[in-house]
Design a protein around this nucleic acid. Structure first.
Lengths: 69, 69
DNA sequence: TAACTACAACTAGCTACACTAGCAAATATT
DNA sequence: AATATTTGCTAGTGTAGCTAGTTGTAGTTA
């Protein structure tokens, strides 16, 4: 659990979400919970690659865009 | 656990590793096991973002390069 | 300013599965 | 063929990923 790295990831996810005018509720669908999106944005937890794929899909971006920081 | 997605990720990791003439042993350091690298390349398991960061570091690439497929 | 709505954060608890040690199998190298 | 190197397989375990439920906060309306 690399907190520093996860912090950057969380900020990136939030940035992409806000840019799209989506709520955490909007992104917390299709196999990922609203709570998980919150925990992630706050870097309070790690995530699996598969869950990142779901989030990317819900944000309508590529997974690699989540790591574009 | 998105098997299809993980298969592509696994192939990408192997590609980057072989390109650099590294063994699974070489990549399985600094907090990730050799076995985990094998399981990943074969798409037999999921991984956390933090572990992906370690793998990317060991491969001397950016995390987003792991998802460049 | 109370009441309602919308959105985000927090916590407790469970259990799935990420992760590794140990071993087997395969592939080079001599 | 023997040895070394590399990779694959599996059982077992512990931990932390994940969610349900709840609380907190900010904005809106009347």
């Amino acid at each position: 659990m690399n907190k520093y790295f996860l912090t950057k990831l969380g900020k990136q996810i939030k940035k992409l979400r806000v840019e799209r005018n989506l709520t955490q509720d909007d992104v917390g669908i299709n196999g990922i919970s609203r709570q998980m999106v919150s925990l992630l944005e706050l870097a309070r937890t790690d995530v699996t690659a598969s869950k990142l794929k779901i989030i990317a899909d819900n944000l309508q971006v590529e997974v690699k865009d989540l790591f574009d920081f």
